[in-house]
């Protein structure tokens, strides 16, 4: 037991610092991925609701493909192929030579891409849950589209979407563990290295599990509070999917 404390601690023989840094990397990758997913998801939700036919079709295909491929393969494809795509774009822009794309960037983008497909569905559902009356009222008062989006649609939809987005954030954290296959030292990679080095896999994988559990639990609470605040003063509303 004492040995476990030494190994997980912050002393010279302890892996505490490495695990702490790795935990923060997991948070950083997840945050970037979630932001990517939110942007993509919003664009896709818009394309599906109000976009031109071609864009709607593109958004549909994106959703079907991303939900049909294992996350691990999406990350591999992004890790190995992402650079070529980005380089091709950069070269069009007048850039010569390759553009670096690190494990961090590849991982965040790949998970963002996966999460974007799911977030699009959450946001679309939230949009449809907006009572059509409020939209009509806004239109009647002569609101411009952007004003309407900002003042009517976004606040209402976001409130309805919060639980779904919270779930997506939890998924993103768990998916971020897969980025370890690219060699990026996030939580899972760090505990694997420690497990191999000390030959104590149980201790370190358990510690890794605890780190993820801590992150998901705390951020779950944050989302719960956000939901509660968003719902304040609102009549109880059933959220339809």
């Amino acid at each position: 037991m004492g040995e476990a404390f030494t190994l997980l601690g912050f002393g010279p023989e302890g892996w505490g610092h490495a695990l702490l840094t790795a935990g923060l990397t997991t948070l950083a990758v997840s945050a970037c991925a979630f932001a990517c997913g939110l942007v993509l998801g919003t664009l896709c939700a818009w394309a599906k609701i109000a976009g031109p036919a071609a864009l709607r079709r593109a958004a549909d295909i994106y959703g079907v493909v991303l939900r049909g491929i294992p996350d691990l393969l999406v990350i591999y494809l992004f890790y190995f192929g992402g650079r070529q795509i980005v380089t091709a774009i950069a070269n069009q822009f007048g850039h010569t030579g390759p553009v670096e794309i690190s494990g961090f960037v590849a991982g965040s983008l790949a998970i963002g891409l996966i999460s974007g497909a799911a977030q699009a569905e959450v946001l679309r559902g939230a949009f449809h849950a907006i009572p059509s009356g409020t939209l009509e009222a806004a239109r009647v008062t002569g609101m411009r589209r952007w004003t309407m989006f900002r003042r009517i649609i976004a606040p209402q939809a976001l409130r309805t979407a919060l639980p779904g987005l919270g779930n997506q954030w939890q998924s993103v954290i768990k998916e971020s563990a897969l980025v370890s296959v690219t060699g990026l030292v996030e939580t899972l990679r760090a505990v694997s290295v420690a497990a191999n080095s000390t030959e104590l896999p149980f201790l370190f994988f358990l510690a890794g599990g605890a780190i993820y559990l801590a992150i998901t639990t705390v951020s779950g609470l944050v989302f719960r509070i956000a939901e509660w605040r968003a719902m304040r003063g609102q009549p109880a509303m059933r959220v339809g999917g």
Binding site: A177, L178, P201
Partner: peptide, 11 residues
């Protein structure tokens, strides 16, 4: 549900 499947497999 709070931990990644990959870590469950390794464990």
């Amino acid at each position: 549900r709070g931990t990644p499947l990959l870590i469950q497999i390794f464990l």
